[in-house]
Amino acid sequence: MSRFRQLEFDESFEEPKGKDEQRGTPVRDEKYFHDLAVQFWLGGDYELALRNYSRSLEVRATFLEGWSGQVRMLIELGEYAEARKWADKAMDLFPEHPDLLAAKAVAAARDAMWQDAMACSDAAIGKPNAGARVWMSRAEVLSLRNRAVAETCITNALSMAGALKPFIHLESGRLLMRTGNYYAAIEHLNLAVRLLPRSALAWLELGKCQMALGRDEANVTLEQCLRLRPDWDEARIMIGRPQGWLRRLRARIFGR
């Protein structure tokens, strides 16, 4: 090829693609990084998921799922103030987008700022394009006040989830478990592991729920989680936790 190096071509000539792309390696666009981030989230690695959401935005800064994903990962990491700040920043690009408002409502609710949470949730739910995530955030904001209404919100979220259904089941299970409704949570988590069998997060949450209910299969579930993600200390610690008869009895009586 060296003897053609000095030849002149017009500007429309495009360089041939690299070896990797020629062999069918996926294009590293925003969707690629988004999918990667979702995989990391399902694996319980929120830090890497956040990083990949950021990379998706590096490719295309107006990628809405990237922004809302970043906010959700900040919430998962317990950085609620940052999540709210970042949701505000995302709303500079997407003013009053229901998904971002919903994520902000969740961040405020987890940070015990009930009025802010309620206001954001109200604003999100009033938008015409409010989707499943908006109803899930509504469920989270209301779950601590009125469990029955929260469960209706979860039902609404599931009815409009579409392709998000597995994630909504997982989120519903986690939410119900957080509010102490273990019996309802385990149904959603069972569906979640059936729909997302390779999600270590779903297995871990199911294991936690089973353990809280004093069920014997919790250890098997957590072992499955460790098979998917062997380095997850949280699961390893939970497996090592004693499962005495008193603990099981307490769990069966009090439901936790």
């Binding site: 935005l57 800064a61 900040l74 990491l77 700040k85 690009l93």
Partner: peptide
């Protein structure tokens, strides 16, 4: 609605951390 229309936006995409 005020949303951005173009994909090329100069904005910092790395969130602040606690």
């Amino acid at each position: 609605c005020g949303a951005v229309l173009k994909d090329e936006v100069a904005v910092d995409v790395h969130p602040p951390r606690m």
